[in-house]
Amino acid sequence: MTKDTALEARLLGKRYGGRTRGWALRECDFALPAGRICALVGPNGAGKSTLLALAAGLLRPTEGTIHAPAREHLAYVAQDKPLHPRLSVADTLRMGRELNPGRWDDTVARRITEGGGFSSDTLVRELSGGQRTRVALALALGKRPELLLLDEPMADLDPLARHQLMGLLMADAAEHGTTVVMSSHILTELEGACDHLLLLHDGKVRLDGSVEELLAAHTLLTGPIADLAPHTVVESRTTGRQLTALVRHEGPVEGPWDTAEPSLEDLLLAHLRTTEGAPA
């Protein structure tokens, strides 16, 4: 792994339990440049959580390798936001300091817990789902990670808190150059925030690259039904005599169609809807 790569997988595979079970992740190959905000998307069961847990060092790969920063330099927030229920919020942050000596930044952590509508004496088990998310994020960012792994981080938040926390997350990334990988179902949230995309389906990487390049490589076209060769069709629909298609173009798109660059949402939905997404 070079210095500019924050996370790299080589033929990574993970199978839970015995040989009878299927692969949760298979033949994953990608390299995430440092400093990117990466969206990890895919349908349920695609292997997103498994990939994040492997990156966090919580699981051993069944095959292949994954290179991530050492434990001290990464932070991970699991989907269920695990916290010790009987510790108060203040104790939880103190725990962050005790378990990350020499790295812990209390100011950052407090900036996130403030505005959550709870005092620092509150016990974790008395917090609402959104408040838990806040504390879990505070614990992760207070550690000053180089790589931040977030599994469905915003799912429990109301739109206002989501916007505020996403802002804090982006501000932190802007200030420290933190690489962020977040899995999410909320496409609009990803649209402005992420500049890198990793699409998983059935345990395999279907799309991997910078959002800008991926969008530029695809074309959304509408018009009469005609042969789309040489372009790779990601998804096409016909309504009467009208064709709507998302293609990965080979050279300029010439034909009787109206063309447009797809939005991130167009691209994701098209790939998610087709089971055989075009491999990146």
């Binding site: 905000i37 982006m170 802007a174 200030e175 402005g192």
Partner: peptide, 17 residues
């Protein structure tokens, strides 16, 4: 405004700013 200030208020990617 600094990139930090912009992204904190808008929740967009710092590289965009």
């Amino acid at each position: 405004p600094t990139a930090r200030e912009v992204v904190e208020a808008t929740a967009i990617n710092p590289n965009t700013v």
